[in-house]
């Protein structure tokens, strides 16, 4: 195992993040504050409680997930797409590193950044609402798994993308709608029965439900199912990346 190689990639990726630290820090703080102003104060004042939790607090897990998932995807996809775009990928392909080491470096860095953003949003949220986390350990595990699995998905998107438009395509057209419709801002039980059934096909539902369970001890789907879903998703992403490096798809001609 070329651990120094992994560390070199990780550090290089993180240094890009630190170069724009203020941007990385400020944008989630501002966007979270806006969500709280719009959803928490303006709309939330008309909704009393959702299953015993104030609406402002209820949306916190969904908000964290929304940002963490989009950040994980965009960081990881950009991280691997950029070297492809400017041609520096040659160095990675000619270095004594295997697919696992490359993934560890890039996905590790993207997941770290997403985790940082998640922590910033949680901290910002405490300024607006009273937050008591029922299962802190489970919350951390869910957050970590989400950062890692969606960074893996972002990595796949970055390798697949042939231009900057494609890089934005999947997050905009698929991931963001799935997050919004996955119960970020409402409970599935608020939907008519037919929509409840349809929603269960949305994988993000299981993530947000599990994450919300860690906060408030209540969930739309059983917690075991949530864990299974995120584990299966991580496994699927890893299998796809393994196949990409084995065949050299979009990397080696």
């Amino acid at each position: 195992m070329n651990l120094r190689g992994v560390w070199a990639i990780y550090r290089y990726e993180m240094s890009r993040f630190f170069r724009t630290l203020m941007q990385s820090f400020l944008s989630p703080v501002i966007s979270t504050s806006l969500y709280f102003v719009v959803f928490g104060a303006a709309i939330g004042s008309r909704i009393d409680e959702v299953e015993g939790v104030s609406y402002g607090a209820f949306i916190v897990p969904g908000l964290v997930m929304l940002s963490v998932i989009t950040q994980a995807i965009s960081n990881a996809s950009f991280g691997i797409y950029f070297p492809k775009f400017i041609g520096t990928i040659y160095e990675l392909l000619s270095a004594p590193v295997n697919f696992l080491e490359i993934v560890l470096g890039y996905v590790g860095a993207a997941a770290t950044k997403a985790l940082f953003i998640g922590a910033v949003i949680l901290a910002t949220a405490t300024l607006f609402v009273d937050l008591h986390i029922a299962h802190p350990l489970a919350m951390v595990v869910f957050l970590l798994l989400t950062c890692i699995s969606f960074s893996l998905l972002g990595f796949i998107i970055g390798i697949w993308a042939g231009n900057f438009e494609q890089l934005q395509l999947v997050p905009l057209l698929v991931v963001t709608p799935l997050i919004f419709l996955g119960g970020s801002f409402y409970s599935i039980s608020m939907l008519p029965p037919i929509w409840q059934t349809i929603t269960l096909f949305n994988p993000v539902v299981y993530l947000i439900s599990g994450f919300r369970w860690a906060f408030f001890g209540m969930a739309d789907v059983p917690i075991g199912l949530s864990l299974l879903a995120i584990a299966a998703f991580t496994g699927l992403c890893l299998a796809v990346i393994w196949w990409i490096f084995r065949t050299g798809w979009r990397l080696r001609s």
Partner: peptide, 8 residues
């Protein structure tokens, strides 16, 4: 970075 990537 190049040196690190090669595991040195």
């Amino acid at each position: 970075f190049s040196r690190g990537l090669f595991g040195l």
